[in-house]
Design a protein around this nucleic acid. Structure first.
Lengths: 344, 344
DNA sequence: ACGATTTGGTAAAAGGTTTTCTCACTGCAG
DNA sequence: CTGCAGTGAGAAAACCTTTTACCAAATCGT
């Protein structure tokens, strides 16, 4: 064998509980009980086994353990959001919540492809996952996979769930209300809402909350989720005759950024002349806008954390009430609305 | 038990090969051999077992299988890039390459925390992963984890690898050369390079390639990876006396976007007066810039694919030559440099 | 001193699959 | 009729860990 060819690592034999038992001079069952702190034996024996185990670097084989206990300490995370805008924080939250419990996470990117979704689900079930979290990029769309009648619990996060399941989502009504109230609180009165496509459920929720909080003045401007729409909307507004708004509540940060840029090009000062507030707190957009955007954070990481803990609870057989859980949003104050406390 | 409380799913008993054997009226070993197409038996028997198995929906337990075969059909992906800029495409590539081989991917976000990294590595080893892929956000930094002397093969992707390991990275020299040559080809002659911090290895590689390709004219401007630095750099250049550049080669798309915006604010037309080219092909930045950025794509998904296939090869004991593999970049032509073919 | 209990520990089964070994039987040549 | 090759299928071991049942020795109560 040539020297510059890598092999799998020389078949380093893994250390099993057999080795521990032999090294400590006890039987396998005693070794097992010593390490798991159950069964009866002398304190000296227990300590000796533990010491020997850590000395020779023993780690129990999770496969063997799982085979017996019916728990693999593994869950699957299904997503169709390759962009990562929404999935990444959710995923980080899930992983963070579960790593403390020794649970690992399979990532399955299914790309809106039902066949791929099916393959991933089957692979996960074969690997005896303790549960599945389904997450997506729209909370009014289902993942293109059938997750009913699975032998493991399923929790939905930021995607539409099956009836009678547990679903976590952001409270967009709360978020929009936070935004509008902040604008009102900083003295703005003529607030226009520039947002995304009408067929998004969140668009309606945010628009309704806006109307309610702002007193139902101006109409809502629907468009697409892009900077260019922010530009166009501003152009359209400033082309109109009559009083101009003194604040823009945008449906997401990209639209807000487009709006801010368009205002600046017109010589309109943000936030002195017009306040602009976004939605999503997508750092890369919000923080790089000039001025940096005040925006609404949907707390997706926290959402992921809760989803993770919930699927764990279900996997352990602890009861959980089904239903949709709406998590509150958080206002992130930067500089695009003025305001007193420019944290961050 | 109240009805509105979710339980783990009613303990649906999983179907094992025992059930298949019983239903087909054969022994367990015969069933196993029939399903795996080995051993000797009558054609009729083999077919019957297979038919019965699929009828009752049998799927082999991967844990039991892994216990015996020493292959878990699972690999771990370690990353410290929570932002997801670089990790996501790599991950998508890994997953895509491996799903066909029945291999699932554990995602481990370790956040530059050595302790967390250690925990994740141990969890993965306990779960008998067949291999580990380490990926990061800088190819001149190591992950804060010790991956030497592991009982499984390790492959590095977009992060610095251990000596004598397999490492995949982008060929930044190639990428920068592509960029500069494109500018030259479209008739530009006075190209300035605005890039990131000096302590990044890629910054040097790109700057060196730039100097070589551009003929070593202008000095390189080092700064940070942000839009604001793009702005500042343009301001600085246009404050200077003397001839202005007719092209800017920026170290990443964010800098490029800042530069484009700054040029537009000065009334300088892109690409008519000045061409701007970026690096990274970060869709969200590059495609939303006005005009959309021509940029260099590092083909991170392909990099992930290759890393996935390589770790699989090592896991299966197939020999792989160690060393650093530099993958070529790809020029993505949009509109910020003119040019003939505005695809995408 | 003797039955009852406690103590310290071992043997064996279980979990689901794969693989090797063995066995019974058929057909055929000698 | 005996020996033998070939065929079809089952028994059992192995993978590693946990748990239950069990056993021998020591201790206790009266």
């Amino acid at each position: 064998m040539r020297e510059d060819i890598l092999e799998t690592g020389g078949v380093k034999k893994r250390i099993t509980i057999h080795d521990v038992a032999a090294a400590a001079g006890v039987s396998i069952s005693t070794a097992s009980k010593a390490l798991n702190n159950n069964g009866r034996m002398g304190d000296e024996t227990r300590e000796r086994v533990k010491r020997v185990a850590s000395e020779i670097g023993f780690r129990p084989n999770a496969l063997a353990r799982g085979l017996l206990s019916k728990r693999s300490f593994t869950i699957g995370l299904l997503t169709n959001d390759t962009y990562g805008r929404f999935t990444l924080p959710v995923m980080a939250g899930v992983s963070e919540a579960l790593v403390d419990h020794g649970v690992s996470v399979f990532l399955c990117a299914i790309e809106d492809d039902p066949a791929l979704g099916q393959i991933h689900v089957e692979a996960m079930l074969d690997k005896q996952v303790d549960g599945i979290i389904a997450t997506g990029k729209r909370l009014d769309r289902r993942l293109p996979v059938d997750l009913s009648n699975l032998p493991v619990p399923v929790v939905y996060a930021f995607t539409e769930g099956a009836p009678n399941s547990v679903t976590f989502r952001s409270d967009d009504t709360h978020g929009a209300t936070l935004a509008v109230e902040w604008l009102l609180q900083t003295g703005r009165r003529r607030i226009t809402h520039i947002t995304g496509p009408k067929d998004f459920f969140s668009v309606h929720e945010r628009a309704d909350a806006y109307s309610k909080a702002a007193g139902g003045g101006e109409p809502v401007m629907y468009g697409i989720w892009s900077e260019s729409w922010g530009h166009e909307a501003v152009a359209e507004i400033w082309k109109r005759t009559g009083e101009k708004p003194d604040a823009l509540f945008c449906g997401n940060d990209q639209i807000a950024r487009g709006a801010v840029d368009a205002l600046r090009e017109r010589g309109i000062k943000v936030p002195e002349d017009v306040s602009v507030i976004g939605f999503d707190n997508w750092e890369i957009v919000a923080a790089q806008t000039r001025p940096p955007l005040t925006t609404v954070d949907m707390e997706l990481k926290e959402l992921g954390r809760q989803a993770g803990l919930t699927v764990l609870a279900l996997a352990e057989g602890r009861p959980v009430e089904p239903g949709v859980r709406k998590l509150p949003c958080r206002l992130v104050v930067r500089q695009s609305c003025g305001g007193n406390s420019p944290r961050e």
